[in-house]
Amino acid sequence: MNFEAIKVIYLTEMARTRRTIMQSIISPVISTVLYFVVFGAAIGSRISEVDGVSYGAFIVPGLIMLSLMTQSLSNASFGIYFPRFTGTIFEVLSAPVSFLEITVAYVGAAATKSILVGLIILITASFFVPLEIQHPVWMAAFFLLTAITFALLGFIIGIWADNFEKLQFVPLLIVTPLAFLGGSFYSINMLPEIWQKITLINPVVYLISGFRWSFYGQADVSLWLSLLATTIFLGGSLAVVHWIFKTGYRLKA
């Protein structure tokens, strides 16, 4: 293993965050607080409780998941797209670095950033509503799995995209809707029967459900199903990354 290479790529990526601290950390926090005010305060005053949890507290896990997903995705996709765009990726590709090392470094850095953002949001939320975390270990597990899975997905998008439009396309047109429709702001039990069924094809439902369960012990789907779905998602992303490096797709002519 070329640990030194993993280290320098990871640290360089983290240094980029420090240079762009506004976009990287502060803006997601502000937008989450806005969600919180709009959904929690305005709508929450009409919906008092969901499954025995106050609406304000109910949406916290969904909000954290939402930002965890979008942050992982955008950090990772940009992190690999930018060196491809400027051409500096040549250096990594001609160094004695394996695909696993490249992926660990870039995806690790992106996941670290989104986890930081997620934690900051969690802390911010605790000022607004009373929070409880019944299963901290599970919470940490879902937190990590989601951050890593979506960072992998972002990594794939960053390699696939050959222009800035494509780079924004998947997060904006696919992941954000899936996250919103995946029960960030409601329990899927609140939907009409037919929609409850349709919603189950949305992988994000399982992530949010499992994550919310770790907070309040309330879930839309069973915990093990959540875990299984998340793991399949992770495995699928890993397989695609492996294929990318094996074939040199979009990286090597």
Binding site: E4, A5, K7, V8, I9, T12, E91, V92, A95, P96
Partner: peptide, 14 residues
């Protein structure tokens, strides 16, 4: 300076 140090690290050198 950082970018030269980065290049060295990529090749696994301390």
């Amino acid at each position: 300076g950082d970018t030269v140090a980065f290049s060295r690290g990529l090749f696994g050198m301390k």
